[in-house]
Amino acid sequence: MPWTVYLSGEIHTDWRQRIEAGARERKLPVTFTSAVTDHDASDAAGDHLGAEDNAFWRDHKSAKVNAIRTKTLIEQADLVVVRFGDRYKQWNAAFDAGYCAALGKPYITLHDEALVHPLKEVDATALAWARTPEQVADILAYIITA
């Protein structure tokens, strides 16, 4: 059976590419989807609805346009991986994890040990906590081929 895995979270490191490479190496039948990872493009998602003088309203419109993609792809996914980096606060990733929990959608969190305490509620409903993208690839290999 082909799997669809949604990759949520920080956009400043290569964690997505490392998971995808691990799946390719194992020849896993996985399609990966994601939010828009081009930060400038994501921030400008609502600009075609009209210019805004106030940054709040620009962000608000762009967040709603981006949510169309995020909501749809999470709902279509078989599994979600939610990455929390140590450099930026990923409130959107926390929201995605909560949305998965509300839907009963299985998700894996991916973050360093230093974030265990701040993410304890998010991790409590995750089905796994991984520290490296390679661990996520190992989990995918197990659940798909076991």
Rank of each mutant, 00 (worst) to 15 (best):
E134N: 02
L79N: 02
D78I: 07
L7H: 06
P118W: 07
R87I: 11
T4W: 04
L79M: 07
E134G: 03
R69P: 00
I108V: 15
Y142K: 11
A102Q: 09
A114T: 12
P2L: 12
Y107S: 02
T145W: 00
C100Q: 07
H60E: 10
A101N: 09
V81A: 04
E10Q: 10
A93S: 13
R83A: 14
A35I: 10
T72Y: 07
D123L: 04
G98V: 09
A101T: 14
R24T: 13
W3Y: 13
P133H: 00
I19N: 12
E121C: 03
A128Y: 03
L103T: 08
E113R: 11
D112I: 04
A55M: 09
A93R: 05
D14F: 08
R18V: 14
A137I: 05
A45H: 10
S34W: 14
D123K: 05
T37I: 15
L127Q: 08
G50H: 11
D59N: 10
S8W: 04
L28N: 12
T13W: 06
T109P: 01
I11Y: 10
Q17H: 12
R87A: 10
N66H: 03
H111I: 06
I68Q: 06
K89P: 02
P2E: 12
D123F: 02
E113L: 11
V5A: 08
F95C: 06
F84E: 02
L127M: 10
N66T: 09
A130N: 01
A45W: 06
F32D: 11
R58W: 05
H12Y: 15
V5N: 07
A114V: 11
V36Y: 05
L115S: 04
G50N: 09
T4H: 04
